[in-house]
């Protein structure tokens, strides 16, 4: 079965759909957690600490967090490898272009590949900025995420990178969620509107929810 999945275009799309939905589920939780920043430093920092003690005493300190991280890394890698291989194949399947050019498919569909690359680069920067603190502006303090977030969004480039990435995320999710549903065979004529509506709602909620944080720092609501 693994060989069939990996050897077929539909199989690779299935892997992309499942890994995409795993990442999407994580993003919804991540976005909701971020909004705790509006309740002040003690609550936001306390939430960040709880993420490390989650699952105790059954799990050791930070184990739950590491399990989530491993699952996410596997999902990102599988998603990206399949996307790369399928894209190579898709481009080869149309070797000569039409002379009479016109835009094919919607904006969200056409920007899936570049959007995905933008998101991959963003994830690297985001982890180096707010998880490891390697490229953080100002002094990175582990265990004080509230101050770290405020520091990042007090720089112009921090805001620009984040806003661009979140717009790319919205477009990616809008087409990606609906596509995943089709790939997994959940799409049919009667469910079309529900699936498209859910995709739009997820895209809007994620983009708006994530963008609320830098906007709040920029306007001084969070400082």
């Amino acid at each position: 079965m693994t060989r069939t999945l990996w050897g077929s275009t539909i199989g690779k799309k299935t892997i992309m759909a499942v890994s995409g939905l795993i990442m999407l589920g994580y993003l919804v939780v991540h976005m909701l957690g971020n909004l705790k920043i509006f309740f002040g430093p003690p609550e936001f920092n306390g939430y960040a600490h709880w993420l490390r003690t989650m699952g105790e005493p059954f799990l050791h300190y930070e184990w739950a967090l590491w399990i989530v991280r491993v699952v996410l890394v596997v999902a990102v890698v599988l998603h990206a490898v399949c996307a790369y291989q399928l894209s190579r194949r898709d481009l080869a399947a149309r070797p000569s272009k039409y002379v009479h050019k016109r835009a094919r498919a919607g904006y969200a569909t056409r920007t899936m590949r570049w959007g995905g690359i933008i998101l991959a680069l963003f994830i690297v920067w985001h982890v180096l900025d707010l998880t490891t603190g390697t490229v953080h502006s100002g002094g990175f303090q582990a265990g004080h995420p509230y101050q770290n977030v405020v520091d990042t969004f007090s720089t112009w480039y921090g805001n620009v990178i984040y806003l661009v990435a979140m717009l790319a995320l919205g477009l990616h999710v809008q087409h990606g969620f609906w596509s995943a549903a089709q790939t997994l065979g959940a799409g049919n004529a009667t469910r079309e509107r529900v699936l498209k509506g859910t995709a739009n709602l997820l895209a809007l909620a994620l983009t708006a929810g994530f963008i609320a944080v830098p906007v709040a720092v920029m306007t001084g609501v969070v400082s």
């Binding site: 275009t9 690779k12 799309k13 898709d90 399947a93 569909t109 609906w178 596509s179």
Partner: peptide, 13 residues
């Protein structure tokens, strides 16, 4: 797949 057709990206064209 063997014939070299591309995969589906649900463009709808």
């Amino acid at each position: 797949d063997e014939e070299g057709f591309g995969g589906c990206t649900l463009a709808g064209e």
